[in-house]
């Protein structure tokens, strides 16, 4: 019986209990508009979470994800507003994200800067670069255009909200990718034990670079959903603590920070729990700062439990693995 219990199932059960609890206890929780906004938020967190999961499975982490998302999509909107073709702008935005991913990957794989440090600094650099050279104002609005592209975040397909469809697609692709492609398997191997992976002949460094490129591209997808859902992109989002929500989702779902474990299912479970929690707190009218404290304490507890469940292995812990 106890063997049936793992973090994924426990978290799933808590999510269900919370959902039922909020539905009964909080008026307005089950209302159509609330569920819609819950799903939107959850989907965005989920898409980002899948990107982050790829990194964490490969024993990395990407703190520059939100910055990349904000700056590349905001830049795209700036270009579209100034008359550039939408698809060209999208291509350029993706290109920008890919460059960020490559720089991250090179710093981490080849220069051997600890991932958490490299991406923290890259987040600052990307934001600074974007604000200095690409984007003038704080908030960039969506152009008035009827292209289907602008309904990614708000419309529905057969009654299912589009963000959910996007989340599902990203999740499906990522799951197939991690399970069935060579790169996906390599990613697990690298996360499990870099030294062994290297001796076995896996191209460890290219795998790590590819990892961060992938994360950056997924960040753009999430950014498009964000921008089209609220018809604007607020660049100050890059300064927020959203990236820790993403880590929270991943770690809570049961993907160990020591790498090599977990999958897309864990992200979905974690996303549901955090989405319900955040929504519930918003309805309860808790302030932004109070919510921050709640989330942080939960994250701290999650890391604590993670440390106890996946104790750091002194044999494979790298020097400078902080």
């Amino acid at each position: 019986m106890l063997k049936m219990l793992n973090q994924e199932r426990i978290v799933g059960a808590i999510a269900v209990v919370l959902f039922i609890g909020f539905s009964i206890g909080l008026s307005g929780f089950l209302s159509g508009s609330n569920i819609l906004s819950l799903i939107q938020n959850v989907s965005i967190l989920g898409i980002l979470g899948i990107g982050m999961a790829i990194g964490i499975i490969g024993r990395g982490i990407d703190l520059s994800m939100v910055s990349t998302m904000v700056i590349s999509v905001a830049w795209m909107l700036v270009m579209v507003n100034s008359g550039v073709n939408l698809w060209l702008a999208l291509g350029l935005a993706v290109g920008f994200a890919v460059v960020v991913g490559i720089v991250n990957g090179l710093l981490i794989a080849y220069v051997e800067v600890p991932a958490i440090f490299a991406t923290l600094a890259m987040g600052i650099v990307v934001y600074g670069f974007g604000k200095s050279f690409l984007i003038g104002q704080d908030v960039v609005y969506l152009p008035r255009d009827e292209s289907w592209f602008y309904h990614i975040g708000s419309g529905q397909i057969a009654g299912v909200p589009n963000p959910v469809v996007v989340f599902a697609l990203v999740a499906l692709v990522a799951a197939l990718f991690l399970k069935f492609t060579k790169f996906g398997r390599y990613n697990y191997a690298v996360g499990d034990n870099v030294a062994t992976a290297r001796i076995t002949g896996i191209p460890v460094r290219p795998v790590i670079v590819a990892q961060y490129v992938l994360i950056a591209v997924i960040a753009v997808v999430a950014g498009v959903v964000v921008a089209t859902a609220v018809t604007s992109m607020n660049t100050r989002l890059a300064l927020s603590t959203q990236v820790y929500d993403v880590i929270l989702v991943v770690v809570l779902g049961g993907i160990g920070l020591s790498g090599g474990k977990g999958g897309v299912r864990n992200v979905i479970v974690g996303t549901l729990l955090i989405g319900i929690l955040l929504n519930g707190m918003t309805i309860m009218n808790l302030g932004y700062t109070t919510q921050n404290i709640f989330k942080s304490v939960i994250l701290l507890a999650a890391i604590l439990i993670d440390t106890m469940l996946n104790p750091r292995d002194e044999q494979t812990a790298q020097h400078g693995d902080i």
Binding site: V113, F117, A118, M122, I124, G128, F129, K131
Partner: peptide
Amino acid sequence: FLSGNSSLILGGVLLAAVAIDVR
């Protein structure tokens, strides 16, 4: 300089310093 510039410079210096140090 604006805040965007200085965070760009600060982040860049940080990355360069760490890269040099690690190597």
